[in-house]
Each structure stands twice: as C-alpha cells, then as structure tokens.
Simulated scan of single mutants.
Amino acid sequence: MNVLAHLSAGAGQPSPPAARSGRHRVLPYLLVLPGAAWLLLFFAVPLVQLAGASLYDPTGSISTGYALSWAFGNYPAAVQAYWPQFGRSFLYAGVALALALLMGYPLAYAIACKAGRWKNLLLVCVIAPMFSSFLVRTLAWKTILSDNGALVGLLRDVHLLGPDGRLLATPIAVVLGLTYNFLPFLALPLYASLERLDRRLLEAASDLYAGPLETFRRVTLPLSRPGLIAGALLFFIPATGDYINAELLGTPNEYLIGNVIDSAFLVRLDHPQGAALSMLLMSVILAVVVVHLRRAGTENVL
C-alpha cells in the first residue's frame, strides 16, 4: 500500500526540468520535419535530377538514351543559341512590372486607406480572376485584343492605331497579358503593407505642414517598402519564366525563354538543352533576387 501511495503521489508531480527542456528542443524539429520532407522530395530531388540532365551527352536521344558525360558545354551552347529569348524575357517582365507598379500601388493604397466599407468587396475583385484558369484568363485577353474587337476599333477611331494597326501578336499584347495575370501577386503584398500603416504618422506629417505628396514620399512610401519589395519579387519571378502569354498573345518573334524550354522538352525532345536552359534561368533569377535583397535588406520583405 505504501508503494502504491508513493507511486500515485509521484504521478501528479511535474516532469523534471531536464526532460521538459529536451522535449522543447526536439519539438521545433518535429514540426519542421513534414515541410522539410516535402521540399526534399518535390524540390531538392527534382532539382538535382534537372542539374544532372543538363550535363547529359547532347548527342543522345530519348530512343537511344542519354549518358552523363559532364557536358558543361551545354551551357555556353544554350546561351549562344537563345540569348535573345533570355534578354526578351527579362525585358518584358521588367516592363510589365513597371506597368503593374503604376496600377497596383494606387489600387492597393485605395483599398487599404480609402475604401472604407467597400474594402472587402474590392479585395474580392482583385482576387476573383485567380479563381479561374490562367489559360482561360489569357484566352480572354486574346479576345479583347483581337483585330475585330472593341478595343482595337476604339483605338483606330481615335487614330492611336492605323487602319491596319493591331495589338494582338505584338510585344504590347504579351506585356499586357503578363501585367494582368500577375498583378494580384504585386497588389496583395502591397495592400497588406499599407493596411498595417499607422495612420497617426500620416496625421503627424500633416501637423508638421507636409503636403500630400511630401507625406507620401517621406512617410507612406518608405513604410510600404516591405510590401513593395515582396510584391515586385512575386511578380517578376513568375513573369520571367512565363510562356503562355507569348504563346497565345504573341508570335515566334515574341517568344520568351519559357517557350524555348517548353519546346526543348516537349517538341524537340532535347532534354540536355532544356535542362541547361532551365538551370540558367533559375540561376539568373536567383542572382537577381540575392542582389535585390542585399541592397534592400532581408528585413524589408519579412
């Protein structure tokens, strides 16, 4: 009975500090484990396979098989053959980003600071297009920009386009498609940043006789910088690798590096070249992101 009483009394005692400390050290790793396993299986392993495929012997084929010959020459050959598509991808993505900033910042500011009871409705309007397929949205732009569409007819009537002028199958159409499809990725982080803005700082700027433009330049814009940087990265990265907009809204003269990679894997079946182009694109984008974060500071995107 004494033993049972002793055991029952000890059962209600708290665990020793050393045991609790050990559990606390292990628990974070257990929580991270599922996500880490997911990234390892579906990101790290395919990335290693892609890097290996970029070094296959370029003389191989799907039918005869590929041999890992450490053919580093695949990289300069890919750049030499497709540097115009590389440059065009970054140019179009940069122009589209500039247009998105001109439209997305006022939109995010209006929703966060001026919308009032209409805020939720306007947010739904920004997000709602993403509920439909990316392909469907791009095909809709193909209809909007068609030669017989209302938009082209209006531009011809006001003489902004010639009688035979067109928008479809031009660089303008591709840039407009990129801007529209990826605009929410820029607007939403900007909105989140502006929503957290302390309105008392704006009032203080007004009390110090700062006008609206000065208040925006000295207060609003610097404080919204985290959302601006995050939104710009979220916009630029997928826009650079996109190929649907150039495929549907442009011609081969407007093809981006994504179109070349798609053709290498699915049409020409040249896996070493497609893998080399993919690795080059990822490397350049990663370099752009690292340089951008080093200049802006990682705390500005957190």
Rank of each mutant, 00 (worst) to 15 (best):
Q49K: 07
Q49P: 00
G52N: 15
A53L: 04
S54M: 08
L55A: 03
Y56P: 00
D57R: 06
P58A: 00
T59E: 14
I62Q: 12
I62K: 09
I62P: 06
S63F: 08
T64W: 02
Y66D: 03
Y66Q: 09
Y66W: 15
A67H: 14
A67T: 14
G73I: 13
N74W: 11
Y75G: 03
A77E: 12
A77C: 11
A78D: 04
Q80G: 14
A81D: 10
A81G: 07
Y82M: 10
Y82I: 08
P84N: 08
F86D: 00
G87P: 09
R88S: 05
R88L: 08
F90T: 00
L91R: 02
A93E: 10
M103C: 13
Y105G: 08
P106E: 01
L107E: 08
Y109E: 11
Y109M: 07
I111Q: 06
C113R: 08
C113H: 13
C113D: 11
C113Q: 13
K114S: 15
A115Q: 04
G116D: 11
R117W: 08
W118N: 09
N120Y: 14
N120G: 12
L122M: 09
V124T: 12
I127W: 00
A128P: 04
P129C: 13
F134R: 01
F134Q: 00
L135R: 00
V136I: 11
T138A: 02
L139V: 04
I144T: 06
L145K: 03
S146I: 02
D147K: 02
N148A: 07
N148I: 10
L151P: 08
V152H: 03
G153L: 05
L155V: 02
V158H: 05
V158C: 04
H159W: 10
